[in-house]
Simulated scan of single mutants.
Amino acid sequence: MAATLRSRHVGKPSPSRPVVTGRRDCITGEVPSGKAGMGYRMVAYEGLLARDFILILEQDDAVLRYQEEPAPFRWHDGVRWRSYTADFAVEIDDGRRVAVEVKPRKRVIRLGWDGFRPRIEAGARAAGYDGFELWTEVEIDALRVANAALVASERTFVADEAEQHTMRVVLDRFGGRGLVRELRAASGLQARAFRAVVALVARGEAELADPGRPFDDNAVIRRPANPRSAP
């Protein structure tokens, strides 16, 4: 049975279609947003690929806010008009608003998405979007998701301000850029040192110098050029 998702947070927008719970073929849930533009609310997802996409959005500073399952828009399939609900509407800091579909590549091929995608994009632009994007597991790569998940996990813990201050001082002592294992060793925080490093990134006070590498002891973090506010 389909149940309409209800907000547990004041001001949380409601998805435009029901979120089906208890389905054997689709895992549903919610993840916390760390973005000020999202009001730090819980974001609903349908499917693990959508969850992974949310994690990537959360770590992209160019993304101001996003809405899961926004209002539907009309598109023409060449014969008749149809209604389409995107998985996400994403607002970017350059002023663009993009409709996004998240779908496994096998389903994209089986349903023939490459054939009618241009028509959906035309409908999206007519509805006021600046573009339409289709994301599959090809674009949502495992390493990028793993790094994002690590940073997102830190938001579920209360940061120890003394440890955070220690790691800030150490990072500044290194000139605002350093290898994680060297920062850990210099901090004297021992087992808590790595979490303190991750917390700096989660709070927007540091960033991975190379997002294409694993976030581990061999990663380099640095002070961001444009620090974002921490929740």
Rank of each mutant, 00 (worst) to 15 (best):
Y84S: 01
V201L: 08
R168C: 04
R51P: 02
P118N: 12
D160N: 11
G176P: 09
S33K: 03
G178N: 08
G188C: 02
R184M: 15
A162W: 00
R8D: 11
G11Q: 01
R173H: 07
A148R: 09
E163R: 06
V170C: 08
P104T: 08
E121H: 04
A152E: 14
P211I: 07
T85D: 00
R173F: 05
P72M: 01
G212F: 05
V158E: 02
G176T: 12
A44W: 00
D141C: 08
E161C: 00
N226R: 12
G204V: 13
E182D: 15
A142Y: 06
E139T: 04
I27P: 02
D93A: 03
I120C: 03
D210F: 13
R41C: 10
T21Y: 11
V180G: 15
V201W: 04
L48K: 00
G131N: 09
G112K: 07
V201K: 04
A230Q: 13
V220I: 15
E205P: 10
D172K: 08
Y129F: 15
R8I: 13
N226Q: 11
Q164I: 00
V31C: 14
L55D: 15
A191Q: 08
R203H: 14
G178V: 09
A99E: 07
G123E: 06
A230E: 14
M167N: 07
V43M: 04
H76P: 10
R177A: 10
Q190F: 04
S187W: 03
R41I: 11
S14I: 09
F88T: 01
E30A: 11
E137M: 09
F215M: 13
L200I: 00
A219W: 09
L183N: 11
N226T: 11
S153R: 11
F53K: 12
W113H: 08
A126G: 03
G78I: 10
A202W: 02
A2S: 03
A152H: 12
R228W: 15
D94W: 02
E163C: 02
E163H: 09
D87E: 06
K12M: 05
M42R: 05
A2F: 01
S229W: 13
A3W: 01
G131S: 10
E91Q: 09
A127D: 06
V10R: 12
H76V: 09
P18D: 07
W75D: 06
E46S: 00
E133C: 14
G123C: 04
Q59G: 15
Q164H: 00
G123D: 03
L111P: 01
E133M: 15
N226C: 04
Y45A: 00
I140N: 06
I56L: 15
L5H: 12
G176A: 07
V138D: 13
R17M: 09
L49V: 05
R181G: 10
Y84P: 06
M1F: 00
E69A: 04
A196N: 03
G212T: 08
A99M: 08
A89V: 01
L179S: 13
G34I: 14
G115Q: 08
D60F: 07
V151A: 13
E207M: 14
A44S: 01
R80C: 06
R8S: 12
E91D: 11
E121A: 13
E207D: 07
A206W: 12
L64W: 12
F53I: 02
T4Y: 09
P231G: 15
R117I: 03
